[in-house]
Computed example of a mutant assay.
Amino acid sequence: MNENNVTPQTLCPVARAETVVGDRWTVLILRELFMRSHRFEEIQAQTEATPQMIAARLKKLEADGLVERRSYNKRPLRYEYHLTEKGEAFYPVVLALRAWGETWFKSPEEGRAVHYTHRSCGKPAGLGPVCEGCGQTLRHDDLIVEPDPAYQAERQERWEAFKASR
């Protein structure tokens, strides 16, 4: 094992990265962390994964250094999950998946699920990886996130359904 907890069976960086983030649930958990959902229940509701799947992926992401747990309640003990610097560095991948999905898996009349405004220039950021307005590389903290009303309603429906099932 090396310092990143990856067994170096190949020199291919794509194969090595895939061992950490190469399944649907892990990528969706990371999406939720970028959407500022930090609590287990929020992540579970929006990914629609089982608690066991979420727990296993969060533990692996923590072991791999992408996520850190922070206590927010002592009795009972509860944690929030936050991205580390290494986790934040995954953001360009999320932007690339978003751009690919917006381009190839949606009809034009659906519109974008999320609109980003670049804080630096105040203009729409576009699909990335650089701002359409000013050409700067997009970073997660530099963006104002505005979900489309339909997407916001979809997320709210998932949250309400999750709460009702408990």
Rank of each mutant, 00 (worst) to 15 (best):
L11M: 10
D64M: 09
G101W: 04
V114Y: 00
T10K: 05
G65P: 03
L83R: 04
E110Q: 14
Q9K: 03
Q44I: 08
E160W: 04
E48R: 14
V145T: 14
F34L: 04
I144S: 02
R31C: 04
K163C: 00
G111V: 14
N2C: 00
P147H: 01
S107G: 06
G122P: 11
A153L: 14
V67P: 08
T103D: 14
A125T: 06
P13E: 09
K106W: 01
A113R: 14
G87N: 09
S165K: 15
L66A: 07
A164V: 11
T103P: 05
R36L: 09
F162M: 01
L30R: 07
G22R: 05
G133I: 11
D142T: 06
G111C: 13
R36K: 14
K59Q: 15
L28W: 04
V130H: 10
A63N: 15
N73E: 14
V94A: 02
E85V: 03
E80K: 10
G101T: 08
K163A: 00
P108R: 09
E146T: 15
R112Y: 13
A17E: 14
C134I: 11
C131F: 04
P124A: 09
G22F: 04
A89D: 05
I54W: 12
R158I: 01
E88T: 02
G111H: 07
K163Y: 00
E154A: 13
A17N: 13
G111S: 11
H115V: 04
W159Q: 05
N2E: 03
F162D: 03
R112N: 13
T117P: 02
P76V: 08
